[in-house]
Computed example of a mutant assay.
Amino acid sequence: MQNPALVAAATTNTGRHFAELPATASHGPLRIEYRWVNETAADAPIAVFLHEGLGSVAMWRDWPQTLCERLGVRGLVYSRPGYGQSTPRAHNVKWPVDFMTAQARDVLPALLDALDIDMRERQRMWVMGHSDGGSIALLYAAFYPDALAGAVVIAPHVFVEDISVQSIAQTKRLYESTDLRDKLGRYHADVESAFYGWNDVWLNPAFKQWSIVAELASIRRPLLAVQGRDDNYGTMAQIDTIADRVPHARLVKLDACGHSPHRDAPERLNEAIGAFVLGSGDS
């Protein structure tokens, strides 16, 4: 039974739920939007999906469903604070340079606690992260090396490259001069919260020194890192660095694919993830 002090869930006709997380040293009380995929498969392992820097539950579209069916797992899809229908970022608040660390160390474990996902379930759990979500997945795997079956990271960032900053600056120009704001507004209750929370921290000069390379050596569980060769937000140096620091990691480099393989090359991505996860013996 869920602890009513930790979680209060409300279901909508879209299958959306909300979890209430208590305040901690790194954040105040939070309302987290989440959705289950294949929820009735109660005995199946869980795959937790961690979205990109402008993502949300809705922006994944049907990819989590497709992948979960292929893997035979349940999926937990949620919007991080500041995104989707989750608690928005106050407009006068700037995210700190280590904002992804707080998401991996505090927010994700608090959500798992609130949903009564116990340690036995977590030891069979896969974390699937894209872009910023990939970085958070790596950090979670490093901080809690025994609390997951493995991780799949898609176009993750482990340090800051000029190409990333340049593309993010270009995205800001598009947001402020085209209909990008309206398009993103379909997926976020407070689009300004989502966009500037992400954009401001990435364009903060202090963020150029951000790196999680040192943390990678703590990852013990199976790890798959995937990146498109045409990614305009990062080079292959990102996943090559992962391979240098995590010798057991497996890399997949996709031709004719940009920053979002689950949109650009979903069949090839699902094939690679399926072969890796199902071959690991943990699904």
Rank of each mutant, 00 (worst) to 15 (best):
R122D: 03
L251V: 09
N199P: 04
A137N: 01
F207I: 03
Y34E: 00
E267N: 06
G53D: 02
Q65D: 11
Q123Y: 10
Q227F: 11
V246N: 02
A23I: 12
H188S: 05
P205R: 01
P4G: 02
D264K: 14
S283R: 06
A214M: 04
A19L: 04
V165K: 01
L139P: 01
Y187H: 08
S131P: 01
Q2K: 13
K172D: 07
S167Q: 14
S131V: 12
D264Y: 07
R74C: 10
D240M: 06
P29G: 10
A275G: 03
M119Y: 15
V158P: 04
V97L: 03
A249H: 03
Q2H: 07
S56Y: 09
R89S: 03
A194D: 01
L115F: 11
G133F: 11
S177K: 10
A272M: 08
Y140D: 00
G129I: 05
L254Q: 05
A237S: 08
M119E: 03
Y187C: 07
L184I: 14
A5P: 00
M236S: 13
K94P: 04
F195R: 08
I212T: 00
V107A: 02
H188V: 13
S164M: 12
T40W: 04
P261I: 05
F49K: 15
R263G: 01
T87I: 03
G84W: 04
Q170A: 15
D132F: 02
R61H: 14
A47E: 01
S164R: 03
G134Q: 02
A243L: 14
L76I: 14
K253W: 13
L138D: 00
G185F: 15
N232G: 07
H91R: 08
T12W: 06
T66D: 12
V107Q: 11
V153L: 14
S86M: 11
E271T: 12
P156F: 14
A142I: 09
A275K: 10
G55P: 11
F276G: 06
W95T: 02
D264E: 08
G55W: 09
L21F: 13
W95V: 05
D43N: 14
N199K: 04
